[in-house]
């Protein structure tokens, strides 16, 4: 992991810009799982020089980009990512069954996993699988396995919900995916390290640290 650059952008980042920031922070040669949704954008910003190997829960290491007909790729329904979108192979890729795929995850072999989130607590609790609203059909997929598996679990999210409430909170109010599992939060307003000593701010975007701490209700 690269050291904090301490950089401050003059404006809030788009999710695509945030994906580039996360891609920059992933160490060379890492084995990485990118969760469904926003985190999949990170793949577009990883450089070949980084030599990052992508894991997909449905049984593949060395997953390539999305298959595109206009590039002349063979669209193969037997080769998809976790979001069931056709992808391509990369040289050196491998396939394995589901129990092995999750053993790889649960066993702590992946270096980094990046997940989306509804809420993250200051102590790293993650809520990203269920809104808890009655009538919603619950669906967890691999979220709980991913949350406790990788050596580093990063969250990629907007810092504030549509109603303006912070998503980095003192305690999650939504059903938990994992307890104390998130080590870093990448958001459009800043990057946070969640440590036993408290929340550390690595970078801020479009807002200064003092204002960010105030809006999040963080001490000092």
């Amino acid at each position: 992991m690269k050291a904090s650059t301490g950089s401050t952008s003059g404006r809030v980042l788009t999710m695509d810009e945030l994906a580039a920031v996360i891609a920059r922070d992933i160490a060379e040669g890492s084995y990485v799982n990118l969760g469904i949704g926003q985190p999949t954008k990170i793949a577009d910003h990883l450089t070949p020089e980084q030599g990052v190997v992508l894991h997909t829960e449905n049984g593949m290491l060395g997953m390539g980009r999305k298959a595109e007909e206009r590039l002349g790729d063979v669209i193969d329904a037997d080769l998809t990512n976790a979001g069931k979108v056709p992808v391509v192979e990369t040289p050196g890729c491998s396939y394995f069954h589901h129990a092995d795929s999750f053993a790889m995850m649960r066993g702590g072999h992946l270096d980094v996993c990046v997940l989306g989130a509804f809420q993250v607590s200051r102590t790293g609790d993650l809520a990203n699988w269920s809104t808890g609203r009655p009538g919603d059909i619950p669906a967890v997929g691999g979220a709980m396995d991913l949350a406790i598996g990788a050596k580093d679990v990063f969250v990629m999210m907007t810092l504030f919900a549509k109603d303006g409430s912070p998503k980095l909170v003192e305690a999650c109010t939504m059903p938990l995916t994992g307890v104390g599992c998130v080590s870093r939060v990448y958001s459009d307003h800043g990057v946070f390290d969640l440590t036993p000593e408290g929340v550390g701010i690595r970078e801020t975007y479009g807002v200064d640290e003092f204002e960010l701490r105030r809006r999040l209700g963080l001490d000092g």
Binding site: H97, A103, M105, G142
Partner: peptide
């Protein structure tokens, strides 16, 4: 979705890795 909302099917949600490992 329609069967579930109509109460015509039971659902047990299992984390994906647990589903695989429990069968293993």
């Amino acid at each position: 979705d329609e069967l579930y909302r109509a109460g015509r099917i039971e659902l047990e949600v299992v984390p994906q890795g647990n589903l695989a490992e429990r069968m293993r």
